[in-house]
């Protein structure tokens, strides 16, 4: 079963991932412009793009545990998933800047004054070095440091979900469900006792 999944995954080209997610953003923008996202398309678009970015981060975080615990190797898709997540964060930010807030003075005031905006912006800034080093040259150049740098993804995912929880009104289940999934995926990365033993020996 596992071998069959791995064999099948090898047949899927990486650009299929780009294609699979790439069409969603233009489709959402088109629906927003033509009434398909409801009476208030700006907030709807902003939220959809943000949620897709968070989902992509979660998918990216699944790949290591999938290989470690189930032997399913989808690591060759990880770069595309990460860059897609960054693209959706950029679009989410662009909608917020140009369609939602609109006013340059207020943008800065919001970043400084509103904690959920601050947290979201920090997550975005942390993603920039990750996106810039998502190429073979950077991997070779950074060597072991590349892996350490890209652990920032964990912080990005946590900050992203905190941003989501913080902007929700009342006690809402959905953002908390995202938080639980992210914590579970991070917990699976904790070195288990055996590997700790091995390391100390």
């Amino acid at each position: 079963m596992r071998d069959r999944i791995n064999a099948l995954a090898r047949l899927v080209p990486v650009w299929a991932v780009w294609l699979g997610y790439g069409w969603v953003a233009p489709w959402l923008i088109y629906r927003g412009a033509t009434g398909g996202l409801g009476a208030e398309p700006i907030k709807a678009l902003e939220r959809e793009l943000g949620e897709i970015a968070l989902q992509l981060l979660i998918i990216g975080l699944c790949l290591t545990p999938l290989r470690r615990y189930l032997g399913v190797n989808l690591l060759r898709f990880r770069r595309a998933i990460g860059l897609l997540a960054f693209s959706y964060v950029c679009l989410h930010l662009a909608v917020w800047l140009f369609l939602d807030v609109q006013d340059a003075g207020r943008i800065w005031a919001d970043i400084v004054k509103r904690p959920y905006v601050t947290v979201g912006m920090v997550a975005f800034v942390l993603m920039i070095p990750l996106a810039l080093t998502s190429n073979d040259r950077a991997v070779r150049w950074l060597g072991a440091r590349w892996r350490r740098l890209h652990r920032l993804t964990y912080a990005v995912a946590v900050l992203g979900v905190v941003h989501f929880i913080w902007l929700s009104k009342g006690f809402q289940i959905e953002p908390l469900a995202y938080l639980a999934v992210i914590f579970a995926l991070l917990a699976l990365r904790l070195p288990d006792s055996k590997s700790l033993e091995r390391r100390t020996r």
């Binding site: 927003g32 009434g35 009476a39 208030e40 700006i42 678009l45 207020r106 919001d110």
Partner: peptide
């Protein structure tokens, strides 16, 4: 902020 508002129905 409560300084401004967006009227529903104005589109994207």
């Amino acid at each position: 902020s409560q300084a401004t508002e967006r009227r529903i129905g104005g589109g994207l």
